[in-house]
Computed example of a mutant assay.
Amino acid sequence: MEKVKIGTSDLAVAPINLGGNVFGWTLDEQQSFDILDEFIANGFNFIDTADTYAWWVNGTGGQSETIIGNWLKSRGNRDKVVIATKVGSETRDHPFDISRKHILQSVDESLRRLQTDHIDLYYTHYDDHRTPVEETLSAYDEVIRAGKVRYIAASNVPPARLEESFALAAQKGLPRYVALQPHYNLVERAGYETEYAPLAEKYGLTVFPYWALAAGFLTGKYRSEADLGKSVRGGGVKKYLNENGLAVLDALDTVAAKYRSTPATVALAWLLAQPRIGAPVVSATSKRQLETIIAAPALKLDKEDLERLDQRIER
């Protein structure tokens, strides 16, 4: 499988990024191990988590990193995987925070939970809109020089603050972001394509979209309000049950039938066909779900398929 080079880094990843948000939430440790084992066995190597996953369960988070750390230790395969985690999100008891103090404390806590001496890709998870950009980048410089982090990336950072980050990095020799993790999928396009895609192109960022399947909506599992109770995430897709969302599902059904595939696989293949997209972030709670995800890189949609999907979408 051809790997994707992340920005200007020397990291190379297979084109699916396994989301760890379900570890310690809808999956226990053994179930998480099973998914991780299957993912790696199929030639993939990129795992995404955050220091606050799954804070909505216990108020503080840390379960996902702990499970991944236990898995890395038990399998002895740290050198075979690329680990991405994040800093800066809020929890029940702590606000958004990308201050130097919080970064230096959080990176050590993440390393301890992950049972590793370095993080390959460290994200600014959310901007706190108050810490000076130079303070944040300088803190990253400290942890990179200490060997605790290899490269940094950005997720929910406003375009203006991203621009300031790159300007300061160039001006003062501070670390620069090599990747971007935005909210982007077939039913959530305008924000990324209008505001962030030009920045990704300008700064050579590799893009790893989160909620790549729109919280499960693009699997076709939810087609009416009666379907929302099928999982704990069902309430989050209610907003897509409209004319546009259902038209997207119809287009996915048509293309999936053509390839004897699934809507989820097609939705991910569409993402992978977009400029600068490296590896969509997708979680799985069963091996059957994982199979539909890891099939996406091999599915090459033709121009007609891409146009059919595009035509069903209101930007």
Rank of each mutant, 00 (worst) to 15 (best):
1 M>G: 15
4 V>H: 08
4 V>S: 04
9 S>V: 09
15 P>M: 09
21 N>T: 13
23 F>L: 15
26 T>D: 12
26 T>W: 07
27 L>M: 12
28 D>L: 07
29 E>R: 15
30 Q>G: 12
31 Q>T: 09
31 Q>E: 15
33 F>H: 15
37 D>K: 04
38 E>N: 15
42 N>P: 05
43 G>Y: 10
45 N>M: 02
47 I>N: 06
48 D>Y: 09
53 Y>I: 00
53 Y>C: 03
54 A>V: 08
54 A>S: 11
55 W>A: 07
56 W>K: 09
64 S>P: 01
74 S>Y: 08
76 G>A: 15
80 K>L: 14
81 V>T: 11
82 V>R: 00
87 V>C: 14
91 T>P: 10
94 H>V: 05
97 D>Q: 09
100 R>K: 15
103 I>L: 09
108 D>N: 11
112 R>A: 13
113 R>S: 09
116 T>F: 10
119 I>G: 03
120 D>Q: 07
121 L>N: 08
123 Y>S: 06
125 H>W: 09
126 Y>Q: 10
129 H>C: 15
135 E>N: 02
135 E>A: 00
138 S>I: 00
139 A>H: 04
139 A>N: 06
143 V>D: 08
144 I>G: 04
149 V>P: 06
153 A>K: 01
154 A>K: 06
158 P>R: 11
161 R>H: 12
166 F>N: 06
167 A>D: 11
168 L>N: 01
176 R>G: 05
179 A>R: 03
184 Y>H: 10
184 Y>E: 03
194 T>G: 00
195 E>A: 12
195 E>S: 11
196 Y>M: 03
196 Y>D: 00
199 L>M: 14
200 A>S: 14
202 K>R: 15
210 Y>H: 13
214 A>I: 01
220 G>H: 00
221 K>Y: 01
223 R>E: 05
223 R>S: 05
225 E>H: 11
225 E>P: 02
226 A>S: 14
226 A>T: 11
230 K>V: 01
235 G>N: 12
237 V>S: 03
237 V>D: 06
242 N>I: 05
246 L>N: 00
250 D>H: 15
261 S>A: 14
264 A>Y: 03
266 V>G: 02
270 W>L: 08
275 P>S: 11
278 G>L: 09
282 V>F: 08
289 Q>C: 10
293 I>Q: 04
295 A>R: 08
296 A>N: 02
297 P>T: 01
297 P>K: 01
300 K>P: 02
305 D>H: 09
306 L>T: 03
307 E>D: 13
307 E>M: 15
309 L>M: 13
310 D>G: 11
313 I>F: 12
